[in-house]
Design a protein around this nucleic acid. Sequence first.
DNA 1: AGTTCATATCGACGGATGTCAATATCGACG
DNA 2: CGTCGATATTGACATCCGTCGATATGAACT
Lengths: 114, 114
Amino acid sequence: MEVKTITACCDGLLAAPLGEAAAEDLAAAFKVMADPVRLRLLSIIAAQGETCACNLTAPLGKSQPTISHHLSVLTDAGLLHREKRGKWAWYSVAPDRFAVLRDALSGTPDLVRR
Amino acid sequence: MEVKTITACCDGLLAAPLGEAAAEDLAAAFKVMADPVRLRLLSIIAAQGETCACNLTAPLGKSQPTISHHLSVLTDAGLLHREKRGKWAWYSVAPDRFAVLRDALSGTPDLVRR
DNA sequence: AGTTCATATCGACGGATGTCAATATCGACG
DNA sequence: CGTCGATATTGACATCCGTCGATATGAACT
């Protein structure tokens, strides 16, 4: 994946026909969320607060490199914050970036209905 | 893609560690949104209301089969509604399904902050 | 029936992506 | 300094997915 930090801005899908560039950015943001392992990592870290990577390999049944890779994708996208303390890497949720996705979905989808 | 109708339910990513099956469902839902062409299709149809497929091929610069494919993916996921009238296919946004995604993101991401 | 036009399906190709084993990096500790 | 332990990186492989040309389906109209 290796997605850059999410920068897409948009006031909902329904605000105006999405330009090519904006659509590309938004799609990249959604792509980060479009993996079950990443979603579970997010949910675990969010539930536990700051979490050591050493506690994340076991529960998901994936190899250590795979988990490390997904944590990098999430961190690069700005959804997680990584802090290395000694031998260990501590991850926490960086809630700000979720707004981009939420805004895209919260535009007016309900208003269209009628 | 060929994703079934979205059925994932979840009260936000932070509610509880996502199970394997729930994560799979949610990821599939996000995957549908993780394509720039599909996002632009959604935004155009949402802006115009019911839209003929014949008006969707040109503005995106993709081939007719490609657009047809994306429209099918969106329809199968329950995000669009298709109605064939005579020779033409009319698409409209089916806002209900967006709730799944919105709920996943609206859990508590802001509360985690502090 | 035959033609034309709009849309869907099929088959194939290429690039992206998730996965793992092997290896590299780097801090801690003796 | 040398080893161990935790995490990151690399390289390779298989699968998935977006794309298109070609073709099929089916409606309208002569």
